[in-house]
Write a protein that binds this DNA or RNA. Structure first.
Length: 595
DNA sequence: CTGATCACGCAC
DNA sequence: GCCGTACGTGATCATA
């Protein structure tokens, strides 16, 4: 695959920028419409003009950049460094070369600045500034050729860096003593379960090893291997296969319990307390250049896959708590992706159903089974729900059959009926796949792109998987676009602070000073001058999490109602010309588990 | 020992 | 062959 044609340029002779004493050009730096930034973890190199650069300590750069515009590579790290230096008014990101590289070519392997510039090493900051100028100007030209992508970059991904930096810096507090209690009780129950398993098998082994477990089940206990899937290493012992063995032997339930408990303990309960800072806060990293669809991802730790489905899992969410005096406000879009599928496909009846708050899964079941909507049975509705999700993922009769526990024939019938009732959805999927073939990429409503080289594969499985991924991307990606727009709009509304609404709501007048949001460590800041002179009004609350269709804000308890209203209003009206109503549910609580 | 890969399971 | 997008864990095996 042509990997680097869009961005890669050979550079045999690169001229380093000339260093100019910062005091000599301070006025130029302060007045510059944009400043290129290289931050090496220690000092900051700024450039207002190609060929020139000045070196400043981080604290001084923080003052120069206050409220300005920056161009850099991986600017989020730099913004977080500024926040750590108590910078109250971050510069805005005008252009980020790492993020832009991702938007232009998400398949590219390395996005290091040196690679983008085609240079061996950028140890010298003066050389790095020169490289940054080079890459910046090249990317500007590339974006100018792609207006849709340019808009995505400039109105979504670049400004979002600022929001993400603040979210990561802010962090979320966890109640470590709660998790430690859970940890102890998990350790005890795991030990008991493990011993029971050993007793049944007759010897001790590593239950976590799929190979050893398969040997215990199929060699020692001689459980039937008929219908059990084989992997590369042997018989599979995953949940789906264990399901088939249920009732054959009491050990199956014990293994499932062992799996559930050890998963929760290893991945969350024991791991999270090890990742807190000195104040008990967890600071995840939100990656904006990791997914093929434009979604964010979360790492170190991943806060986007904290359990919720089982009671034990939900208890882990209860350990995420707001600072004293604060609450969490969580807002999530209802049926976000299905609504987008309906409107993007132009399936007008479905759109109308969503606009009038019809139970879409029940409606789907009613149509497919040909019964009145109020006579739909719970089983019918459940199956229709699986199909509604399956559509988004490009389901086959095979996939549907196993997901909804029905026969191939039933699944095929269901799919046929579904597409007979929703022909525009089918046409939309097919049209998207055709675009993937004809154009080599698919895109969101706003022009974010995903290259689709594998739809040309001669391997049926590879090609089919690529077509399903292509069909899904415009929907999942448009969801990601709208979420980013919502986060930016929410950030703006929260920043208006208590004073704006105080004028609208007389009852709030006089309390404004205390309504502001600040965590203990921020209040403890010794830099009182910055607090008063920088003086962006204190926000009503701070975004702390984004999980694909939801935004969670932490705010002082007295702001909860106002923040709830802001979230619902902003998210529901994020893109009025979309052509379908967006519904947002909001909840206030004293822990993540409560919301 | 470190890194890559697999199997598995968690989220939306 | 068989429904999309992620990330983290432990086991396992290759590599240095």
């Amino acid at each position: 695959m042509r990997d680097d044609t869009l961005e890669m340029v050979k550079n045999d002779s690169f001229v380093p920028a000339v260093e100019i004493p910062s005091d000599k050009i301070m006025p130029l730096l302060v007045m510059a419409p944009e400043l290129l930034v290289i931050w090496n973890g220690d000092s900051v190199w700024l450039s207002h003009e190609k060929g020139k650069t000045a070196c400043l300590p981080l604290a001084e750069a923080s003052v120069v950049l206050r409220g300005g515009l920056i161009v850099g590579h991986d600017t989020k790290d730099f913004l977080k460094a500024l926040l750590a230096k108590n910078c109250r008014q971050l510069p805005a990101v005008k252009h980020d070369t790492a993020q832009c590289s991702f938007l232009l070519n998400p398949l590219r392997k390395s996005r290091a600045l040196a690679d983008l510039a085609g240079i061996e090493s950028l140890d010298d900051p003066k050389l790095a500034i020169a490289a940054l100028w080079e890459v910046y100007e090249r990317q500007k030209k590339a974006l100018a050729e792609l207006p849709g992508l340019q808009r995505v970059a400039q109105t979504m991904d670049f400004p979002l860096v600022n929001v993400l930096a603040q979210m990561e810096f802010q962090g979320i507090k966890i109640d470590t003593s709660k998790l430690e209690k859970m940890n102890k009780s998990l350790t005890r129950e795991i030990a008991v379960t493990q011993q029971n398993i050993y007793d049944m098998v007759g010897y001790e082994f590593n239950i976590a090893s799929p190979a050893q477990l398969a040997s215990a089940l199929f060699d020692k206990l001689l459980l039937p291997i008929a219908g059990i899937k084989k992997g590369k290493t042997g018989y599979s012992t995953n949940q789906k296969e264990l399901d088939k063995l249920r009732g054959q032997h009491p050990i199956i339930e014990l293994i499932e319990r062992f799996r559930e408990l050890s998963k929760l303990q290893n991945t969350y309960v024991a791991a999270l307390p090890e990742q807190t800072d000195a104040n008990g806060y967890i600071h995840t990293t939100f990656n904006q250049d990791a997914t093929a669809t434009g979604r964010l991802s979360s790492t170190n730790p991943n806060l986007q896959n904290i359990p919720i489905r089982t009671e034990l899992g939900r208890q882990i969410r209860d350990a995420f708590v707001p600072a004293p005096g604060n609450v969490f406000v969580n807002a999530d879009y209802s049926q976000f992706e299905l609504r987008l599928a309906a409107v993007m496909a132009g399936e007008t009846v479905m759109v109308e159903d969503f606009n009038t708050d019809v139970d879409i899964h029940a409606k789907t079941a009613a149509e497919v089974y040909g019964v009145p909507i109020d006579e739909v049975t719970p089983v019918q509705r459940r199956r229709a729900k699986v199909v509604n999700f399956g559509v988004l993922y490009g389901m086959s009769q095979h996939g549907l059959a196993q997901a909804a526990h029905m026969s191939f024939a039933e699944a095929q019938h269901f799919i046929d009926e579904y597409y007979r009732i929703r022909p525009r959805v089918k046409a939309f999927m097919e049209q998207t796949i055709r675009q993937a073939h004809d154009n080599g990429f698919v895109q969101t409503l706003f022009g974010r792109r995903r290259p689709t080289p594998d739809v040309k594969s001669s391997n049926f499985a590879v090609r089919s998987a690529a077509e399903r991924a292509a069909a899904n991307m415009p929907i999942q990606g448009t969801e990601a676009d709208l979420m980013k727009m919502a986060m930016l709009a929410v950030e703006k509304r929260l920043a208006e602070g208590p004073d704006v609404d105080a004028s609208r709501l007389p009852s709030e007048a006089g309390k404004s000073e205390k309504n502001g949001f600040a965590l203990p460590e921020r209040q403890a800041s010794s830099d009182s001058m910055l607090a008063s002179t920088d003086n962006p009004s204190i926000p009503l609350g701070r975004q702390v999490l984004q999980i694909h269709d939801s935004i969670m804000v932490e705010c002082p308890r007295q702001n909860a109602e106002k923040v709830s209203k802001i979230l619902v209003e902003t998210m529901e009206n994020i893109y009025p010309s979309l052509g379908i109503k967006l519904k947002v549910d909001v909840k206030v609580g004293d822990s993540w588990g409560e919301v």
